[in-house]
Amino acid sequence: MLYFSLASKAYARNLQYRGAHMLHNVASALFGYLYACIWIGIGQDRPLGEYGVHGMIGYIAFTQASLWISGFTTNGLGIPQSVRTGQISLDLMRPVHLFVHLMCREWGQIAYQFVYKSVPIYLLYVLVFSLSLPQQVTTLLLALAGLAAAAYLSICMNYIIGATALWTTESSWLYWMNHALINLLAGFFIPVEWLPRWLQTVSWLSPYPYLLYVPTRIYLGFEDASRLLGSLVWCVLMTLACLGVTAVVRRKVEVQGG
């Protein structure tokens, strides 16, 4: 119940800013539109692999909308902020595990972003580009499962990014680096199979493809449920990493601010 309240409070807090967020959606949708225009331009004189121009537009539309689930997670889950204010010492004293506490809060944030950002942006693309929705419900459900795993992976990654703030007091650079890597390795703009071979290897050795590429491919009907196994393995590995990091953080904490 506690976990649910943490998530629902984060969701409710965001509801206050719905208006501003809708304006932001316009900008976010515009980004996807730009990328789609680029692929339309490239696809004018040549075929775009198994996707085709229309398929590529569908691809970009889905990754752009999914970015609000697995890309734009709170910077370091708010840890850098609480390190600077000293709040982190209180957070570590709570009778809830730090990782679980922050994770639940972030789930509320992601749930809000899914409802008020991903869905409206994607619907806008469906109208503007006349995209077709999946024919089978199972495809949709599998894609949602892939996105849920992506959201969890993103939470774990941001937890680890946030934890570095205990050493550097700042982690926004790592956050942006992570974002740049999502753009490049997660198949945000370029499907992973079109990367140079060495970069493909790097990408598949990391959890990045499971953030956007895998859910998108499942949604577009190019992959089946077996891909989700990879997501599951990474979720387990990242959970272990987060628990390990928490153990180190407990010994490292220094109270700043006042």
Binding site: L174, M177, A180, N183, L184, W194, L195, L199
Partner: peptide
């Protein structure tokens, strides 16, 4: 120092995106 190094990394990743395509 970290900020400087990572800024360069971010820039390279951004250009790679265009260059690869």
């Amino acid at each position: 120092l970290l900020g400087m190094l990572l800024a360069a990394g971010i820039q390279i990743a951004e250009f790679l995106m265009i260059a690869i395509v």
